[in-house]
Computed example of a mutant assay.
Amino acid sequence: METRVRSILKYKGNKVVTAVAEQSIASFAALLYAHRIGATPVVDAENHLVGIISERDVIRGIIEHGPALLTMPVKTLMTRLVSTCALDDKIGDVLEMITLNRTRHIPVIDEGKLVGLISIGDVVKQLLEEAQFEVTSLRTYITTP
């Protein structure tokens, strides 16, 4: 049975640093710096996902808007059409989504609300742990009389 997103969140936790659409880019950048992260989902007051924004978006914004960017709201740069997953999605399917969409972070949605965030690193780590477990199990099976 393939691992589900729920298992990754159980291990890593479901605490997610978020931004809000009206927050300034300067405030958002400080949030990324303080938490040592590269992207955050953007949510409304009811914790519904409205977008996602990353360091790359800020870099692009600097080129497009110059210093004025710092006072602009997050909604200026955020990506509004976001690929998401659900708690019971298979991690193989999530890995395929990450690869096809060329993204690094996938918000996890349950009953319309943000309940977690998984990254390409989370998925790869889980797959490596599963592969190592299989190798160990096979070695044990082969060497056990």
Results as ranks from 00 to 15, higher is better:
residue 110 D to H: 15
residue 78 M to E: 01
residue 114 L to Q: 07
residue 92 G to E: 10
residue 78 M to F: 01
residue 88 D to E: 14
residue 90 K to E: 12
residue 111 E to G: 13
residue 112 G to I: 02
residue 87 L to Y: 08
residue 92 G to M: 06
residue 79 T to Y: 04
residue 82 V to I: 01
residue 113 K to M: 06
residue 84 T to L: 03
residue 91 I to S: 07
residue 79 T to R: 07
residue 107 P to T: 10
residue 100 L to V: 12
residue 97 M to D: 09
residue 111 E to N: 15
residue 77 L to V: 01
residue 79 T to W: 01
residue 101 N to D: 04
residue 94 V to K: 05
residue 110 D to L: 09
residue 110 D to R: 15
residue 85 C to V: 15
residue 95 L to F: 12
residue 113 K to H: 14
residue 110 D to F: 15
residue 82 V to R: 00
residue 81 L to G: 04
residue 98 I to M: 12
residue 113 K to E: 09
residue 109 I to A: 06
residue 102 R to W: 00
residue 100 L to S: 12
residue 83 S to A: 13
residue 89 D to M: 05
residue 114 L to I: 13
residue 97 M to S: 11
residue 94 V to L: 03
residue 84 T to I: 08
residue 102 R to H: 13
residue 87 L to W: 09
residue 94 V to D: 06
residue 107 P to C: 04
residue 98 I to T: 11
residue 114 L to A: 01
residue 104 R to H: 15
residue 115 V to A: 11
residue 83 S to T: 15
residue 98 I to N: 08
residue 98 I to F: 04
residue 77 L to M: 00
residue 109 I to Q: 02
residue 103 T to V: 15
residue 85 C to E: 03
residue 89 D to P: 03
residue 83 S to G: 08
residue 110 D to C: 11
residue 86 A to P: 06
residue 82 V to Q: 05
residue 95 L to H: 05
residue 84 T to M: 02
residue 78 M to N: 03
residue 113 K to D: 03
residue 88 D to T: 15
residue 102 R to G: 09
residue 100 L to D: 13
residue 100 L to M: 10
residue 112 G to P: 03
residue 84 T to E: 06
residue 77 L to I: 01
residue 94 V to C: 07
residue 95 L to Q: 09
residue 98 I to E: 05
residue 81 L to E: 13
residue 107 P to Q: 10
residue 78 M to R: 00
residue 105 H to Y: 13
residue 106 I to V: 15
residue 81 L to F: 14
residue 85 C to Y: 02
residue 101 N to M: 07
residue 93 D to Q: 06
residue 85 C to G: 11
residue 109 I to G: 06
residue 84 T to D: 02
residue 85 C to I: 04
residue 95 L to C: 05
residue 102 R to A: 12
residue 95 L to S: 12
residue 88 D to R: 14
residue 88 D to Y: 13
residue 76 T to G: 00
residue 99 T to E: 12
residue 94 V to E: 04
residue 89 D to Y: 07
residue 102 R to P: 04
residue 100 L to Y: 03
residue 90 K to P: 05
residue 107 P to H: 06
residue 114 L to G: 01
residue 98 I to P: 03
residue 78 M to C: 01
residue 90 K to I: 04
residue 86 A to L: 04
residue 101 N to K: 15
residue 105 H to K: 03
residue 99 T to D: 14
residue 102 R to F: 00
residue 103 T to P: 00
residue 104 R to K: 14
residue 84 T to W: 00
residue 97 M to N: 10
residue 111 E to A: 15
residue 111 E to L: 13
residue 92 G to R: 04
residue 79 T to E: 02
residue 77 L to F: 10
residue 87 L to P: 12
residue 83 S to K: 11
residue 114 L to K: 02
residue 83 S to Q: 12
